[in-house]
Design a protein around this nucleic acid. Structure first.
Lengths: 203, 203
DNA sequence: GTCTATAGCACGATAGAC
DNA sequence: GTCTATCGTGCTATAGAC
């Protein structure tokens, strides 16, 4: 029973459409998912979807706009943690949590693909990625200061590389295969001060 | 001057079309590249393209069919190398060589995306990936035997993970940024026997 | 073998009634 | 706000002349 304009109801409907669209985009891809299909999944008409979203591209973007607050909360939760290396692993674990879900792989691929075509989408995911990168970089810097991370590493570059490795866990997704062990070993091996990697420490 | 059936000329034309198609697919994506566009780039008509390729999907697959012999040659060149760890790094370097080229990133993304929709494409790239994985696994096994690689690692699983890390270098591509340093550090840190990663070796 | 022309279809987005 | 109906567009693939 929609009374008045009810802005909250509008937000709920937008959310409902975005969720259903996200499912379909992840499973089938952007181009192979028609707005009519999304409308049917929600139980409405294409025209109604276009009432809530300007066009199909903005519908896709809506799926990723919810990630920014989640990323900010994730970083806030770990940035003050006592041990920076543990905090880094916890953050990366959270980011890789969905890696086993093959539809999450599909969504990452669609995202990478469409980010090249839609500058606004690039801005949306760029903001999220920046929050994560800066949060990780801060933890890396602290780890370097405390001697737990190789001081030769550049904090920001390393943070970007860790993000790419998380993406790799999505690409390496196989059902029933948890990426955590590989991820931990990779990250610890990368961050560790050179304790035995090179036989000759420089003078 | 096309005399007779001239099977060699057919192969050349197919190659020419596949090369041009590859360029466009990498730059714009599969769905956003029409066969008409490919035809124009080659200087011919859409009908002529369909004379050489059954359909658009097979045109896309042709781009990746050339990778199998290249992969076999790459593995053959390194599988007998004296130092297995160096050989692994050399193979991965070769695979990551194009990672700086942004259009190569685009092609990887299109490949991942279409492999889910085209079983024949999945088979084509699967054969190439298997050759690389088995070659790397053989090198890893030898490295374990020689004591240069952690014996707790599973050779095949590790090979698959190294392939995923190579993919990560493509995703982390930025102009003027060479992935080799990160790649080497990551791989060596991952393969190394636990010399200082854990303070307590198990009894 | 290569062309022009077009069939046949699917889709994004809009118009306009209710 | 939601609908039905449809416009306009662009595509893959084919037909048929040369």
């Amino acid at each position: 029973m929609p009374r008045r304009a009810d802005p909250e109801r509008i937000a709920q409907k937008r959310e409902q459409i975005a969720v259903e669209a996200g499912r379909l985009f992840a499973a089938q891809g952007y181009d192979r998912t028609s707005v009519a299909e999304v409308a049917k999944a929600v139980g409405t008409s294409p025209a109604s979807v276009f009432y809530y979203f300007e066009d199909k591209a903005s519908l896709f973007r809506a799926v990723f706009e919810r990630d920014l607050p989640a990323a900010e909360a994730l970083i806030a939760r770990h940035v003050e943690a006592p041990d920076p290396v543990t905090a880094i692993l916890d953050v990366l674990d959270a980011l890789a949590r969905d890696a086993a879900d093959p539809s999450a792989s599909g969504m990452l691929i669609e995202l990478l693909r469409r980010a090249g075509d839609d500058p606004e989408l690039l801005a949306v995911v760029g903001r999220t990625a920046n929050v994560l990168r800066e949060g990780l970089a801060a933890l890396i810097s602290r780890g370097i200061t405390e001697g737990a991370i190789d001081p030769d590493l550049d904090a920001t570059e390393t943070a970007a590389w860790l993000q790419a490795i998380v993406d790799a866990t999505y690409l390496n997704a196989r059902p029933g295969h948890s990426p955590h062990i590989e991820l931990h070993r990779t990250v610890l091996g990368y961050l560790n001060p050179p304790q035995g990697r090179q036989e000759e420490p420089n003078g």
